[in-house]
Each structure stands twice: as structure tokens, then as C-alpha cells.
Design a protein around this nucleic acid. Structure first.
Lengths: 133, 133
DNA sequence: GCGTTATATATGTAACTTACATATATAGTT
DNA sequence: AACTATATATGTAAGTTACATATATAACGC
């Protein structure tokens, strides 16, 4: 919990690691959607790498969660996929956003906007409280 | 899930309700800490009202979570409490932050700063992706 | 050829958090 | 006496994270 505690994210700094404060929401769903939107077409492992460039916690996205969420998205019709047996390495299942997937990303974007605004207010109060203490 | 869906938060607007996108983290811990810091001394119900002024989801903080978290905080030594049987209404247990509680709030503040920065980046990507679609 | 590493997908599950119902009790209002 | 608001507290189903583990293919060095 305290910043001194060494967690496995290599945080030797004086700054508290997000993992030390409990399980924060990692925005797995919107990050996968926006990663796919940016990549156009991609398989799970590529999404993982793109996604972790924008991780909101020190831990980054969970590998297991990526594949589970992609299956879930396909069930809901937000992505569609096919096997890619060409190229090097093991066979990959490549995904792309559907029209519904783009719509869903738009809805997530609106939620994130509101979330950011609200969290910004909390943060101002936090800074004030810490400064006065 | 779609914005049209009426959830119990009275969202008849075209904007998606946060609850429709799954269970977001509501930052129960830091919001209780900062609420207590602002109020000085307060009982659970007062904290609930102060906390919901800065709710990061449409649902606001859960009443049950408030009392459970206050008990947890007391176990950890982040708050201390006593019964207040004076004044009107039922007896209230009034809480105040300890020195460790202020420290913990400081650590949460640092985590929120990082979180906001990271989420801001995601949001920029989201806006770009939605604009291009 | 063979062990090692990197790539790639997938499942299992314990712990944590949220969502919501429910129970209890006191004070004030009609 | 019934109703409403205030105040605290518990129970638990569902959702999410954390992390281990299993499977399989390709590339690389030796």
C-alpha cells in the first residue's frame, strides 16, 4: 500500500503504484475497441501491445481479459474475426470492428468524457485537502 | 447498453449512462477520504451526501459500501470514531481522519493524477477514432 | 536434431468491487 | 397511529481484476 512497498511493477519510486490502492477499473472494453479502431485489423497479441501503450493502471491490460473480451464482443456483434494462417508464427485470429462496434466505441467515449470531468473535480478537492493538511 | 435504454438513473437523454457500460470503479475509498477531509468530522450519512456531489458514475456511491469502507478504514487506522448521541435523530457514529488517513489520501491523490493523465490519453485516441469513423 | 525463447490463444479461479435488497432503529410530521 | 426522513448495518449475486496455467507454432543458436 505505501509507496515504499515494492510491487512487481518495478515501482521503486516514491510514487504509490496504482495496484497498491486496490483493484482499479482498467477500462478493458473501451481500450480494446479503440485499439482495434486504430489498428484496423489485428489479432489479440497485437491488441495487447497497442492497448498497453494506453494503460490506465501500472499493471496494464490483462492478457486473459483481452481474449475473453474479444469473444464477448464477437458474441455481441461488435467485432468480427477470421483465422489468419499466413505469415510467420502460430495461426492468429484477426479481428475488426463492425458498425455496431464503432457505435459502441462512441458510447464509451461519451462515458469517458463524463468520467474524466467528474474525476477531475475529485482530484481538485484531493489536491486542496492535501495542501491544507 | 445503448443510450436509449432507460436505466433507473433517469437518463432519458441521448447520452449513454455509465451504468450501461458495465461496472466502473467508483473510487469509493478516495472519495470517502476526501469527503472526510473536507467535512472535518462527519457520520456516514453526511459522508454519503458529500461524496455524491463528486460521484464519478451516474449511480453515485453505494450506501452499503460507505459503512463497510468506514469499518475497514477504522481497522486499518485511517479513521477514528465515536458515538454521537446528542442532537436530533438516531445515534450517529462520527468519524475523523487520522494522520495515517491523511497520508493515505495523499497517496490516492498521486494515483488519481496518474490515472487522469493516462485516461486523458485514451480519450484523445477515442475522440480521434470516432471522428474518423 | 534439440533445447530455448518469442509469439499467440485460451481457460480456471480466488480475490476484490459493485449493485441492490433488506433489516433495524429513532425523530419528526400528519 | 401511520408515514416519512434520517442513520447504520448486513447479505449476497453479479461483474471485474489478478495471476497462474495450458496449449501450440516458429525462429534461433548450437
Amino acid at each position: 500500500m505505501p509507496p515504499g512497498k515494492r510491487c512487481r511493477h518495478g515501482n521503486g519510486s516514491k510514487r504509490a503504484c496504482s495496484c497498491a490502492m486496490g483493484n482499479l477499473y482498467r477500462f478493458t472494453e473501451p481500450i480494446i475497441l479503440v485499439s482495434l479502431a486504430r489498428l484496423g485489423t489485428a489479432h489479440g497479441y497485437q491488441i495487447l501491445q497497442e492497448a498497453n501503450k494506453m494503460a490506465v493502471t501500472h499493471a496494464g491490460l490483462d492478457v486473459g481479459a483481452i481474449y475473453r473480451t474479444l469473444h464477448l464482443f464477437e458474441e455481441k456483434g461488435l467485432v468480427q474475426s477470421e483465422w489468419d494462417t499466413e505469415g510467420s508464427g502460430p495461426a492468429k485470429r484477426v479481428y475488426a470492428l463492425t458498425s455496431d462496434g464503432y457505435t459502441h466505441l462512441g458510447q464509451w467515449t461519451a462515458v469517458l468524457e463524463d468520467f474524466m470531468t467528474a474525476l477531475g473535480k475529485v482530484l481538485v478537492y484531493c489536491r486542496d485537502a492535501v495542501a491544507e493538511a
